[in-house]
């Protein structure tokens, strides 16, 4: 048994570090940027064209939260090649699996994070806006200097949740032919007829990755909430 494990483990870890983690990290960064834009659009009180933008933002969040991620992956990778737009995409939209995966994961996680970020932005007390306006800041400066830094600290735990969820969800990419960690475990299991051992092993590696990420979350939380401590230099421990 040890021989099987020591043979499979390096292949799994390499696939994890080469595909699982990078796909999760890139998708999360794009998703987070998207989430911030969507959240800011949704909390804006501007009228006119912003009414339409707010509607689009709300529709996007609804769409991606109301449909299964696996179905979204299938639509983007297997479905879009059949979407023929005359002039723009006369032969359909064909994406390579990694692009399709990253686009779908980004859009999916972006929809969830948008709600997290929106709630966090709204949780910053009204007095912070007023104090910043009173010293003569315009809205974008207030957001950038005062509101967003405080909101991101509040949003850190739920955002970490989304990220950890995303790391595990990348296993769905196996279904659109991406040879990420879970796909590699399936291939090994098919060859050595050890499905229980292989899938348990890959589960363990996901658990290790996610544990390291929760440590990272804890460290970030301590670092970013140092200013809330009532004694100088102290931190939650």
């Amino acid at each position: 048994m040890w021989k099987i494990i020591t043979e499979a483990l390096p292949q799994l870890i390499v696939a994890g570090l080469k595909y699982t983690i990078p796909i999760a990290v890139i998708s999360f960064i794009i998703g987070l940027a998207l989430a911030l834009v969507v959240a800011l659009t949704r909390i804006s009180t501007k009228r006119g064209a912003f009414n339409i933008l707010r509607w689009i933002a709300g529709f996007y969040v609804w769409l991606f939260r109301s449909t299964p991620l696996l179905v979204q992956l299938f639509i983007v990778y297997f479905g879009l090649p059949y979407l023929i737009i005359p002039g723009l995409a006369p032969t359909g939209i064909k994406l390579d699996p990694y692009t399709a995966g990253i686009i779908t994961f980004s859009l999916n996680t972006g929809a969830y994070c948008a709600e997290t970020v929106r709630a966090a932005l709204l949780s910053v007390p009204e007095g912070q806006w007023e104090a910043a306006y009173a010293i003569g800041m315009n809205r974008s400066l207030v957001l950038r200097r005062i509101i967003i830094p405080q909101a991101l600290r509040t949003a850190l735990p739920p955002l970490s949740n989304s990220f950890i969820g995303l790391v595990k969800d990348t296993s769905l990419a196996a279904s659109i032919t991406i040879v990420e960690m879970f796909e590699v475990s399936q291939q090994i299991a098919a060859a050595n007829y050890q499905p229980l051992l292989m899938y348990s092993l890959v589960a363990l590696i996901y658990a290790v990755f996610c544990t390291v990420l929760s440590w990272l979350q804890k460290w970030l939380e301590n670092k970013s909430s140092a200013y809330l401590q009532t004694t100088q230099g102290g931190a939650h421990s």
């Binding site: 912070q128 104090a131 010293i135 003569g136 200097r145 405080q150």
Partner: peptide, 26 residues
């Protein structure tokens, strides 16, 4: 300039940075 009943200092900035926030950025 406004001074509020509930102070409304910016909690994520040090005292010094609270004071220079307006002069530097506005």
């Amino acid at each position: 300039e406004m001074v509020f009943q509930s102070f409304n200092l910016f909690p994520h900035l040090t005292v010094l940075k609270n004071i220079i926030e307006g002069p530097v950025h506005v």
